[in-house]
């Protein structure tokens, strides 16, 4: 464990909690992509199956359970409890175009040909693109509420912090996992445009809106 990893984990946790609280407090999931949250639920489910097979640490298990429970609860809020407020007409990204290529790539490039390993690899690839339905929704409506921008920023910066963690681990432990690194770089690059808008607009007190 190092500081980058810890900050990354907590910014990821922060993103999940911000989204959950936003929906809960406003009783509305307007502007939120249910499809992205659904993809994250698939990601966590496939990746954290090792909860049953492999104990790492109490911290590790507790965080995995919090990520899983809070993501499924958010999904329930979007598709059940507050479904009347769900903006489905703007949430039209075809997620099969993300799921199928991730599955094929996981079968082609993985560390080991076993069920758990392939599901883990699939989750890494899918996570790197899971934000696309949400970014697509923001580009379609041309704007995002400030709280949604904070959610997206926390979600994006976490993988960037993980990249710093991987660099740190390479120099201190001589450890590198190329699958995580490449997928993490792809994931972070997808946010670049958003990061730019976030820093130049949202942090200066303006609402995130795209030029028409």
């Amino acid at each position: 464990m190092n500081i980058f990893r810890l900050l990354g984990d907590f910014s990821h946790l922060g993103a999940i909690i911000i989204l959950l609280l936003k929906i809960w407090k406003t009783r509305s999931c307007a502007g939120v992509s249910g499809k992205s949250v659904l993809l994250y639920a698939i990601v966590f489910t496939c990746r954290y199956l090792d909860l049953f097979t492999h104990f790492v640490s109490l911290y590790n298990s507790v965080m995995k359970i919090i990520y899983l429970v809070s993501t499924y609860f958010t999904l329930f809020l979007i598709y059940r409890k507050f479904k009347a407020t769900y903006d489905r007409n703007h949430d039209t990204f075809r997620i099969e175009f993300l799921i199928l290529p991730s599955a094929v790539l996981a079968l082609l490039w993985n560390h080991e040909y076993s069920v758990l390993e392939i599901l883990w690899t699939f989750s890494i690839y899918l996570e790197s693109v899971a934000v696309l339905p949400q970014l697509f929704m923001v580009s379609k409506t041309g704007e995002a509420e400030t709280i949604t921008s904070h959610y997206l920023f926390a979600l994006g910066i976490y993988r960037f912090l993980y990249i710093l963690n991987w660099i740190y681990r390479y120099y201190t432990e001589n450890f590198i996992d190329w699958i995580s690194v490449v997928a993490g770089v792809v994931q972070t690059v997808l946010y670049c445009d958003f990061f730019y808008l976030y820093i130049t607009k949202v942090l200066k007190g303006k609402k995130l809106s795209l030029p028409a």
């Binding site: 492999h54 790492v56 001589n174 450890f175 590198i176 996992d177 995580s180």
Partner: peptide, 10 residues
């Protein structure tokens, strides 16, 4: 370089 993934990351 060690590449064996111990999966302690989230």
């Amino acid at each position: 370089v060690i590449t064996k993934n111990e999966k302690d990351e989230l």
